[in-house]
Amino acid sequence: MKLPIRALLLAAGFGTRLRPLTLNTPKCLVSISNKPLLHIWLDKLVNLGCKSTLINTHYLSDQVNSSIREYDNSKINIYTTYEKTLLGTAGTLMVNRDFFRGSLGLIIHADNITNDNLEELIDTHVNKSKDSLLTMLTFKTDNPSQCGIVETNEKGVVTAFHEKTKNPPGFIANGAIYAFDQSFLDFLDQTHFSGQDISKDLLPKLLGRIQTCYSQTTFLDIGSPTTLSRAQELWKKESLNE
């Protein structure tokens, strides 16, 4: 039986590297081609067939909530969870893991942008190696010291992970988009995981159990004015929802 897709859009951060732009605008509402990043991701999830998404909020949450109300929710159920104190990416996952029971789950950082439609990620996860619990989207980066660089074996399973280190061994980076199902939730339940960050705290515990899906499409972390300008220029020419 094909599992329904549910997604967590991580959208609560301060966006400090984009200041002064983010002093009055939450990072997830920064516009690319006159559309907020958050709406770009919601469109992508609708096109993927996702019926329910959860969005965590914190910084300038009133603006985020207002933007969500402006989005056409006739094709997707949108839920929010407000964090009075930021829980961290893994913390948010842990307190909301029941949201994903009985589904194929996605975790997405809403401050990234890609024209990947995520269909191959889903297919890769469905056909992952039997020991893998999580499937990670990867891409080739021009700036490996600012990314989480992965090493994989011949089956595409992660064997080593280097989170923002100097001179990492390669250019294949973690896209911070993950697919999973009940086996991953069982792992979280059984290990009583308590870390705050997915990349720093959770992924190192899963070496040998993370399948990768390499994307050859454009992928950018909107983490600085430079990458924001690059994204705005690129997406004048490319479709946001291919």
Rank of each mutant, 00 (worst) to 15 (best):
V150F: 12
N167C: 11
R19K: 10
S67H: 04
Q211P: 12
T138I: 13
K130F: 09
M136N: 00
L29H: 07
L10T: 11
D43P: 13
E233A: 10
D72R: 14
L48D: 10
Q146A: 14
T89L: 09
F193A: 02
G105N: 01
L45I: 05
F139E: 09
F171I: 03
L207P: 13
N153E: 11
S52Q: 15
G105Y: 00
K237I: 13
S132A: 15
L9G: 04
D201W: 03
L206H: 02
L134K: 01
F100I: 01
P168N: 10
T57E: 07
Q216M: 05
D116N: 05
N73L: 13
N56K: 10
E151S: 14
L87V: 13
T16V: 13
R19D: 12
D142A: 01
N73D: 15
R209F: 08
N73H: 13
P204R: 03
A160T: 09
K237C: 06
R97L: 01
L10Q: 09
T53V: 14
L38N: 09
S229W: 05
Y214F: 12
E238Y: 10
P168R: 13
L203V: 12
F161V: 08
S132Y: 07
K84Y: 14
A176P: 04
G105D: 01
Q146I: 10
T22Q: 13
T80P: 01
K237A: 08
I107C: 02
T218N: 11
S52A: 09
F171T: 09
K237Y: 04
T92K: 13
G156N: 03
S31N: 12
Y71N: 12
S103Y: 03
Y79R: 05
P204I: 00
A231E: 08
I76M: 13
D72Y: 11
L185V: 01
E83Y: 10
P204Q: 02
V150N: 12
L118Q: 02
P169I: 08
F139P: 07
T227C: 06
Q190N: 09
F180C: 00
V150G: 14
Q216T: 14
A160S: 15
L203Q: 11
L86P: 01
V158H: 12
N127F: 14
L10Y: 10
K51G: 04
K51M: 07
G88N: 04
W41G: 10
F187T: 01
R19Y: 08
V95H: 11
F139A: 15
G49M: 04
R101I: 12
L220R: 07
D111R: 03
P225C: 08
V150C: 15
H125P: 02
G91M: 13
V30C: 08
D43E: 14
A12H: 08
